[in-house]
Computed example of a mutant assay.
Amino acid sequence: MPPRNQAALDFLASRRSLPAKTFTAPVPSRAEVTEILAAATRVPDHGKLEPWRLLVLGRPALTGLADLAEARARDLGGDAEKIAKGRGQYDLGHLAVVVISSPVAHEKIPQVEQVLSAGALCMNIVSAATAAGWGACWLTGWPAHDATFCQQAFGCTAGETVAGIIHIATAPVTPPDRPRPDLAAKVTWQGLEE
């Protein structure tokens, strides 16, 4: 039997998603964010292709994005609710890491696997930030799926998409656990004895 890392399993079994809107200052320093990103980027490089890029945003940048989201919502004829949802995470955010999926033409690595690599990186950042003691929450929202907003806000080019916006800051007291998926309803077993 391979060696067991019980501490890692306990961490994953007890990790909870916390709402980013409940986060407060302080936020990790640049050195602490670098440590989180170094841990998170070790694995989802997908054959050394690294089909993603990262943008780290502090409070002043997030404030500017809130204004940009509002302007974009108005351009689209959005109502007060769309404007509020567009501004929301940027108005309330303290620090965020934007994970941009940047797939490239490759003869052996399909584009879908490259996009999934960016998603895996989002989860790794959430896990690394949580392990470092911070609150972390993976969000998107309608602006993250609007090509014009993404080009203006994040410099996204054709073919690039936002995989996630990971908010990192001080989390409130851990809330009670919520119901988890029923594995019996979600897992099908084939060829493996009990």
Rank of each mutant, 00 (worst) to 15 (best):
G64L: 04
A66Q: 12
E107A: 14
T140E: 01
Q89D: 13
F149H: 08
G88V: 06
L76C: 03
A69S: 05
Y90D: 09
L65H: 08
A61E: 12
K108R: 14
Q151H: 14
K48N: 12
Q89Y: 12
L139E: 15
E50M: 10
V115C: 05
R87A: 06
W52P: 01
V115H: 09
A96P: 08
S127D: 11
Q114S: 08
A153M: 05
W138Y: 09
F154N: 12
W138L: 04
D146S: 03
T140G: 00
A118H: 01
K48M: 14
P44W: 01
L54F: 06
V115W: 07
A40K: 00
E113C: 00
A153D: 07
K108C: 01
G78Y: 08
A118R: 02
A84L: 04
L121Y: 02
Y90H: 11
T148W: 02
R72M: 04
A118P: 09
Q111I: 15
L49R: 13
E81R: 14
R59D: 02
A120C: 15
S102N: 13
L92G: 06
L62V: 10
A84R: 08
A40E: 00
V104F: 05
R42S: 05
L68C: 08
P103R: 09
A131N: 06
E50K: 12
W142Y: 04
W134K: 06
V56I: 05
A69L: 09
L55Y: 06
M123V: 12
E113K: 09
R59G: 08
P44E: 08
G47Y: 10
V56G: 06
D91V: 14
H94R: 14
C150S: 10
Q152L: 13
A129W: 05
G133T: 11
L116I: 11
N124A: 15
P143C: 15
A105V: 10
A96N: 03
L54P: 03
G58N: 11
G58L: 12
G88D: 14
H46C: 11
Q152W: 09
F154W: 10
L116F: 13
I100L: 02
